[in-house]
């Protein structure tokens, strides 16, 4: 049943992407990408990754859509016709995609408990995590305690991205103010 739900969701996502690529109206594109994110979030719920689903629904479908709509407000709502035929980029993308699919043949089967990634440190986290950290949610224990350095790095990345955007968009406003000043 779960496989069926996930497969239906993935098919819908594929459909959404095809329509997305063919649509020229940017408003429709933004709404479709929000729809794609919601489908993704639902697939994540079906795969029992509720944390990721929450993030995807809030960031991917919520805030990104709002930001893209804000960007659409600043430009024309129809995508311009491409200047040349997209055959070469299409060929490069298709061959890269095929290579990636070829690469997945060597991966262990989906949710295989014998996969190497489940044999390394995961058993120790599962066995000792609740006792060592006193946190019943192993995801939080790994994220915040065992992998505290990684999470610090992630937070720093978010901070850096925010600082970069502030620097970029603010300077622009000041130059217009400078232009008007003299």
């Amino acid at each position: 049943m779960e496989t069926l739900i996930v497969n239906v969701l993935l098919t819908l996502m594929m459909l959404a992407v095809v329509v997305l690529a063919r649509t020229r109206n940017l408003f429709a594109v933004i709404v479709l990408s929000g729809l794609y994110s919601f489908l993704m979030a639902t697939a994540m719920v079906a795969l029992d990754a509720v944390d990721v689903a929450m993030t995807e629904a809030a960031v991917g479908a919520g805030i990104s859509t709002v930001l893209l709509l804000g960007a659409l407000h600043l430009c024309r709502s129809e995508e311009a016709k491409p200047a040349h035929k997209p055959w070469l980029p299409l060929a490069v993308t298709a061959s890269a995609g095929l290579l990636l699919v070829y690469g997945t043949w060597d991966l262990p089967a989906f949710s295989d408990p014998e996969a190497p990634i489940h044999k390394h440190v995961a058993p120790r986290y599962l066995a000792d995590g609740p006792r060592e950290t006193g946190v019943p949610n192993v995801v939080t224990a790994v994220l915040a305690s065992y992998r505290g350095f990684d999470t610090l790095g992630e937070t720093t990345v978010v901070f850096t991205a925010g600082a970069g955007i502030i620097a970029l968009l603010r300077r622009r406003r000041r130059t217009t103010a400078d232009k008007e000043a003299p």
């Binding site: 944390d51 929450m54 919520g62 946190v135 939080t140």
Partner: peptide
Amino acid sequence: DFGPGGGFQAGVILAA
């Protein structure tokens, strides 16, 4: 600590 969620999710929901 007990259910799904954490700082990142909470911050994003707050911002939303």
